[in-house]
Simulated assay, not measured.
Amino acid sequence: MDRLRAHSGDARAVPLSPDRHVYVEDGSGGDPEPLRPSYVLAFGELCLVDHDGEWYMGSLHDDGSVGCWAAYGADLAEAIRNL
């Protein structure tokens, strides 16, 4: 975690349990697609979610769910730079 916090520059970075409702919206107004995350990393209210080797960015909601809006590739360091 220290390395993650140092790389992101966010001392609040913490891992969250992946046992939560995580989804990605496709922007078309249709039903959100559920994701099955291996990892969920929180940076304040922003999250990075690993789903099938792809990192998605989203927001942590009050109910503990994470709504993602885009995939940022397989490279965690690159996804962190996009926070």
Rank of each mutant, 00 (worst) to 15 (best):
A79D: 06
G64W: 08
L48D: 12
P18C: 12
E45W: 09
L83A: 01
E54W: 01
D26M: 08
V22E: 03
D19A: 15
A71L: 00
V66E: 00
E45S: 14
L48R: 09
E45K: 15
L46C: 03
R12H: 10
S59I: 04
G9K: 01
W69V: 03
S59D: 14
Y39S: 14
G67C: 03
G58A: 06
G58M: 06
D19G: 04
P34A: 09
G53A: 08
A6P: 00
P37G: 04
P34K: 12
L83M: 11
L46Q: 14
S28M: 08
R12M: 09
G9M: 08
H7W: 01
L35Q: 10
R36C: 10
I80D: 02
L41Q: 05
N82S: 15
V24T: 11
R20V: 09
D75Q: 04
D52H: 11
W69S: 08
G29I: 05
A42F: 12
L35R: 05
E45C: 05
G30N: 01
M1V: 14
C68N: 07
L48S: 11
A71G: 15
E78Q: 10
E54Q: 13
R20H: 11
E25D: 15
A6G: 05
D52Y: 06
L4G: 08
P34G: 10
P37F: 02
R5P: 01
V40F: 11
D62Q: 13
G53V: 09
L60H: 08
R81K: 08
L83T: 02
S17N: 14
R3H: 11
A13H: 12
D26G: 13
G29Q: 05
M1H: 14
L35V: 13
A71W: 04
S65W: 03
G27C: 09
A42M: 09
H7P: 00
